[in-house]
Nucleic acid binder design. Structure first.
Lengths: 158, 158
DNA sequence: TTGTTAATAGTCAAAAATAGTCAAACAATC
DNA sequence: GATTGTTTGACTATTTTTGACTATTAACAA
């Protein structure tokens, strides 16, 4: 269900750079409880994945999902570095890498290298410590990319 | 039983380069306990045998088996992985990366990413601990370079 | 203005729906 | 008989679904 609703919203977002819904309407449309919509948004439309969410309660209330717009690769990298902050979970870190791949800022191989480096199996198991180290490593890699020549890319480098 | 399930999955994989199952369904189909499926996967669909496995728990969970191609540079990478062992200094690690770059096994950008990850400024300062973590990370990265998923169209997110 | 009600959305934790781990029991092979 | 491989099930971990309760806002009544 979550996947279906996610797909629906992403489809709309392919045409527009933002979408505004009424929570109860979408819940009805997909025949689920309203809080399911919150779950979808909290897990699939995070800032690490490149989305901003605004909402208002009360009469005429809404939930608005906005695709984050960036100027260019450099802007994207800077934005991501900010988002990462000084601590990041495995999941969020992987979302960031995935996003960079989807936006053609890194190649698939680069993404895979970065993903292994984010994997929890690499770290100590102390969550707080791991998240700080992971953040440091990811930020260092992104900073590095800022000063590298962009990859020459074909339209589709799968 | 293990052989039968293995054969079944491999038959499907002859037609497609990946297969997605629901563990409980397959267990039912072959009338065995679900954890049997894990056994099959752990013994017959390893990375050494050319398979990658991904899974998700919870509602809508799945196990996905993906055929991977082993790349040409296998020997070189295997040798490097052996040399690295379970502990490596910053200097030696950087030499390894440099060598891979000189031998055209990795690109310049990939080399830079890996070098950042080897840098001592990332680590704790406890030499023994750092060298083990560095080795683990470098080996994980190299293992990753050995395999490649078959071409799959990336979603067209224009 | 000021309360009150209706119409929203948000939070949180329990329950349900999955998959993973591990070790004991069992079976096959050497 | 010892070793290695397989099967089983109890227990754990993760993700999703659900619903009761809370918070906010707008509209309206006093």
């Amino acid at each position: 269900m979550t996947d279906i609703i996610e797909a629906y919203l992403k489809k709309v977002l392919q045409q527009q750079d933002q979408v505004e819904i009424r929570r109860s309407e979408i819940a009805q449309l997909f025949d689920c409880v309203p809080s399911q919509i919150n779950y979808v948004i909290n897990t699939r439309f995070t800032i690490q994945k490149g989305y901003l969410v605004e909402s208002k309660r009360g009469g005429g209330g809404y939930i608005r999902i906005i695709k984050v717009q960036v100027l260019d690769d450099l802007d994207m990298l800077n934005t991501m570095i900010e988002i990462i902050g000084d601590s990041i979970s495995e999941k969020d870190a992987k979302s960031v890498v995935q996003k960079l791949y989807e936006d053609d800022i890194i190649t698939k191989r680069e993404a895979k290298l970065m993903l292994v480096a984010m994997d929890k199996s690499l770290y100590t198991g102390e969550r707080a410590i791991d998240n700080r180290l992971r953040s440091k490593l990811l930020r260092m890699m992104l900073v590095n990319l800022k000063y590298e020549e962009p990859n020459k890319r074909k339209a589709d480098h799968t």
